[in-house]
Design a protein around this nucleic acid. Structure first.
Length: 1008
RNA sequence: GCCCAAGUGGUGGAAUUGGUAUACACGCACGACUCAAAAUCGUGUGGCGCAAGCCAUAAGAGUUCGAGUCUCUUCUUGGGCACCA
């Protein structure tokens, strides 16, 4: 570089113009300079402003490979927001740290015989250096690493508290074991039954494990997702809900009937109440099943237990084909998870000979099977099978030729009060059936001839409004049937019923509150009032009539399967009950309530809520993790390490290799393992398992607030000042696991009184992946990784930041394109050159440039707040292009952009490109940092356009464009438009039906 | 199979409540500068057509004066869940 371009900036103010010998834009030089200045000035450590904002990134795992260009995308976004918030008067907490426990460092240690902390430290240094090149606003005084004993002291402390509260327990359940990593994995760590880290087939192994009772918080984890406080994308909320997987149902006891002549007779199981003491061998033998569809129980034709079910062992002597059963159990145990899922279409099972079960509702005896399509770990590990209303049971029943018995019919229900309406309604149903429309009839609410009709297309119970398609169709249907509209009835602000009449029968047609329960409650009440249960009787009669119609239709369609009513599918939806004794004609919902109540009364079952989410298997048999602070004493059992002994540090070992026997390498260090019991002083052994990597990341956001506190996890006042996290940005791959674990721990800490918010993260944004230029994932394997250092070296950090924000919508994955970086670099060069045009004279600067500047201020402000960085940058480009064009036109070579306008441009660009804007800001003669200024406000007086383009459409097609004042009246513009030659061409000789006028946008001339 | 999101030029993508489709950027083409190249600057760039104009937002229908946007059906892609009774 020639020496002349590197010198000092020479500037002086002469005749109102700022004159200088402009340097070339040299990002390398200015970026380093400002990073150092900002850091030494402590620019980001001003926490004294009035409002607070906590911006958090998901902290990275410092791998040996360093950053690739995908990592910083989220970091750039939080930095843009942080700088924007600082300029808007907020104290901003924007920390960074390291999630540094984990397998890669350990595997490296095994290979090279060095302590994992050595590699970790080196990697952290690399990552930090790479991040620093971006000019982020991190307060490095708050840096934390999960591997730092001063940090993991508190991770262990949380574990101790969980242990004290009974939320950490030891279990011997079968767990997922990865033979390659030689450790246990949680369910969440699996991908298609493979270890997510190494892709090895996971096997089931029974081992002693530490487990955290996350299910105790399931209800709250679910309920708080709907909290107003939470500003998360719906998709993530939905994913979390699915993962938690709440289902409400009931347990039912099926009594076991022994029919084995050689075995013990049924008399040996005295009949008494099983539910109160299910483990008592002397009680009546029953199987407890879990179902969400107890309303289908009259259609139960067999029951199934999972291969793991303990009943098999208990009934060993009663099962005549026990050998066959045992073989099946062993075979399914040997099946991998993969096989169990892939072979899901081929269901297998074995019928238990000599044993049957009794359905408590109808006392029918049905066969019992063992089959691995029933999961041992969910519910009770046993189900009642209703092939008519469950697809899995249906498949199984077809294969083993079991009976299929219908007990629920699709949701045609009619509650009628008089026979008179019946005829009319029958014709409605007939017509509806022909059009495959489902209808609910509810009512008899006010007059004998009066019933409400709600059209329902789906079985969900959403509010139906009069704009709904289904409602429109219902109206159509009634009109087709010859009904006449005779009036309207306003129910609420938004809901109106229409009253239709035909042959003396009046019918209300929704829209109506689709909440079935509500309406039916009203109805029931009404019925009770007149003490007249005719309605129900009639209802049954009607169902019969209607069912017959259905059967006829079915015959015509020649459906093959006996139970099918609609579309040739198993009917798995709610409907009304048939062939179910005195539960007939109830809706599924009503039946479930009534049946569950009956079960509870007879002590044959109870209401039950189940979750898919399991407790969190919390131990790993590896070295590089937080030691679990527990000792095992022969006398006292598992005892927590006293708080004052924390942190329980990882000891030095010679060999980091896992033992493979299920014990961690720690087990080999006798002097560490052997200790005394803190309770009784007797000999004890330390727990040698370590915590999973997820532990440290489940609470790190709290520690940033008070990173050096040796006495407490966090100072209560500081917690109150900063929590919750206002913005949390990270990858969608953490949508379930990390976020559930962190929310779980947070709620636990809330219960302890350590934190004061029930949820940790107020707003959550997901960063989209950056793919390689070839559209694949960036990976060493494909050799397509782009290193951010190189991009920064070539284009500068500001260009890199700008490009990643400009690539596309923030949450979407996009392929990297280096050409794109040169595009934003050109933009920055233009901004740099604009300084030539700056003047301090007051009278200059056109109103047009003012207009576009203030429009840009408005758009950029809104876009940043809504994470639409790409359009914010595009608007900045439009502004700069327009300014450039304007000044290029001007005859004077000297500038005429007002200094304060240029400063505003720099300010709104500064969150994206901090270095260049700070440099230009100070070159203008400002001494204070640009980041200590105030975010500009778009002024209304400049936002109004002098002229707008109005589009003239004829029949919706654009025929002419006119520049007019925005205040032009409708009549004026109509007149002008109709006189236009281009318009005349299309309107001549035609009659104008109407003219649509949209102020400042268009007029549309509609011809006949 | 189920749930969710999305389909717009050669490419990444704009279009805030239904109101000018293709902003901004890349790429490409031509031109200027240059011995030449790079860089830079300028012009053009959805398709068809000489033009007037017509046709285009995955496909098809619908509502509307007007649909990329709303409704229904179908297809495709991406993500999540996957025998959870």
């Amino acid at each position: 570089m020639p020496a002349s371009t590197r010198g000092n900036v020479h500037s002086s103010t002469r005749g109102g113009y700022i004159c200088r010998f402009m340097e070339k834009y040299n990002p390398k030089e200015i970026e380093k300079k400002w990073q150092e200045k900002w850091e030494s000035a402590g620019l980001y450590k001003d926490y004294s402003r009035a409002k607070k904002f906590y911006a958090l990134d998901m902290f990275p795992y410092p791998s040996g490979a360093g950053l690739h260009v995908g990592h910083p995308k989220g970091f750039i976004a939080t930095d843009v927001i942080s700088r924007f918030k600082m300029l808007s008067g907020y104290s901003v907490l924007h920390p960074m740290g390291w999630d540094a426990f984990g397998l890669p460092a350990e595997n490296y240690a095994i290979k090279n015989k060095v302590h994992p902390s050595v590699a970790t430290e080196k990697n952290i240094a690399t990552f930090k250096k790479q991040l620093e090149a971006f000019g982020f606003t991190y307060d490095w005084d708050r840096e934390i690493s999960t591997t730092d004993p001063a940090y993991y002291k508190w991770t262990q402390w949380i574990f101790l508290k969980l242990f004290e509260k009974g939320l950490a327990y030891e279990s011997n359940e079968p767990v997922n074991w990865c033979p390659s990593c030689k450790t246990v994995l949680s369910n969440e760590d699996l991908e298609d039954g493979l270890c997510e880290r190494c892709g090895t087939q996971v096997v089931q192994k029974k081992m002693r494990q530490w487990v955290l009772k996350m299910t105790a918080y399931a209800e709250r984890l679910l309920a708080d997702l709907d909290s107003e406080e939470l500003d998360w994308e719906d998709a993530i909320i939905q994913q979390q809900k699915n993962w938690i997987g709440k289902s409400e149902g009931a347990t039912v006891l099926f009594e076991i009937k022994i029919s084995n002549k050689n075995g013990i007779s049924n008399d040996q199981f005295p009949i008494s109440n099983k539910i109160q003491n299910p483990n008592d061998q002397n009680l009546k033998q029953s199987i407890e099943v879990f179902t969400t569809r107890v309303d289908t129980i009259f259609g139960c034709t067999y029951c199934v237990v999972a291969p793991e079910h303990s009943i098999l062992e208990k009934l060993k002597s009663q099962i005549t084909n026990y050998k066959e059963v045992e073989d099946y159990v062993i075979a399914s145990q040997n099946k991998t998870i993969l096989e169990r899922t892939e072979l899901q279409k081929e269901k297998t099972g074995v019928k238990l000979q000599g044993v049957e079960v009794i359905n408590p509702f109808n006392n029918e005896t049905v066969p019992l099977f063992v089959a691995d399509y029933v999961l041992g770990g969910y519910g009770t590990g046993a189900v009642m099978a209703v092939p008519a209303h469950d697809e899995r049971d249906f498949e199984f029943a077809k294969k083993y030729d079991l009976p299929i018995k219908q007990s629920v019919a699709p949701d045609y229900t009619a509650y009628l009060k008089t026979a008179r309406t019946l005829n009319v309604l029958e014709s409605i149903f007939e017509s509806a059936a022909k059009q495959a429309i489902k209808i609910w009839l509810l009512g008899g609410l006010s007059t004998p001839f009066h019933c409400g009709v709600i059209y329902r297309e789906h079985s969900d119970l959403d509010l139906i409004t009069k704009d709904d398609e289904s409602f429109k169709k219902a109206i159509q249907l009634f009109e087709e049937l010859g009904f006449e509209k005779v009036g309207e009835k306003k129910i609420s602000e938004t809901l109106t019923n229409f009253i239709y009449k035909k042959d003396d029968v009046e019918i209300d047609i929704g829209p109506s509150q689709g909440e079935l329960g509500l309406i039916e409650a009203d109805f029931e009440e009404d019925v009770k009032k007149v003490a007249d249960f005719k309605a129900l009787v009639l209802s049954e009669r009607f169902i019969k009539t209607f069912k017959e119609q259905q059967l006829q239709t079915r015959k015509e369609e020649k459906d093959k399967l006996d139970f099918e009513y609609l579309n040739g599918k198993v009917f798995t939806e709610d409907g009304f009950l048939v062939s179910s004794d005195n539960y007939n004609a109830l809706t599924s919902g009503q039946a479930r309530e009534k049946m569950t109540a009956w079960l509870e009364e007879k002590k044959l079952g109870e209401k039950k809520i189940n979750f898919k989410m399991r407790d969190w298997i919390f131990s790993r048999q590896r070295y590089w993790g937080e030691p679990i602070p527990v000792v095992h004493c022969e006398k006292c059992g598992a005892v927590g390490v006293p708080e004052e002994q924390l942190p329980l540090q990882l000891p030095e070992v010679e060999n980091y290799e896992p033992t493979g026997t299920g014990e961690s390498p720690l087990a080999n260090i006798e002097q560490w393992v052997n200790t005394v019991c803190p309770k009784c002083g007797g000999p004890a052994k330390r727990e040698t398992n370590t915590m999973p990597q997820w532990a440290g990341s489940s609470w790190y956001y709290l520690r940033y607030i008070d990173p050096k506190n040796a006495e407490k996890l966090i100072e209560p006042q500081l917690e109150k000042d900063w929590m919750p996290v206002d913005l949390y940005v990270g990858g969608a791959e953490h949508a379930t696991r990390h976020l559930l674990y962190a929310r779980f721990w947070h709620k636990f800490l809330y219960d302890l009184g350590v934190v004061t918010t029930s949820e940790p993260f107020k707003r959550l944004m997901h960063v989209g992946l950056i793919l390689a230029q070839d559209g694949r994932k960036m990976s060493k394997r494909w050799n397509n990784v782009i290193n951010p250092d190189e991009v920064i070296g070539q284009f500068g950090a500001d260009s890199m930041r700008l490009y990643e924000m400009f690539m596309g919508p923030f949450s979407q994955s996009v392929a990297w394109n280096t050409n794109g970086v040169s595009g934003v670099r050109k933009f920055l060069e233009k901004v740099w050159k604009l300084q030539e045009k700056v003047t301090s004279k007051q009278e200059l600067g056109t109103s047009k440039s003012k207009n576009i500047l203030h429009k840009t201020i408005k758009k950029v402000t809104g876009d940043i707040e809504n994470f639409r960085f790409n359009t914010a940058i595009s608007q900045l480009m439009i502004l700069v292009n327009s300014l450039e064009k304007e000044y290029a036109k001007s005859a004077t070579t000297k500038a005429h952009m007002r200094k304060e306008d240029y400063e505003k441009l720099l300010l709104i660009l500064s969150p994206f490109a901090p270095h260049i804007t700070e440099e230009l800001w100070q070159q203008l003669g400002n001494e204070q940092s640009i980041f200590l200024q105030t975010w500009p406000v778009a002024e209304d007086k400049y936002l109004k356009d002098e002229e707008v383009e109005m589009v003239i459409q004829v029949n919706g097609k654009v025929r002419e464009r006119l520049m007019v004042s925005p205040d032009v009246t409708e009549d004026e513009i109509k007149e002008t438009a109709l006189e236009s030659e281009k318009v005349k061409k299309f309107t001549d000789g035609k009659e104008i039906r109407k003219i649509i006028f949209v102020p400042e946008k268009l007029i549309n001339i509609v011809l006949n």
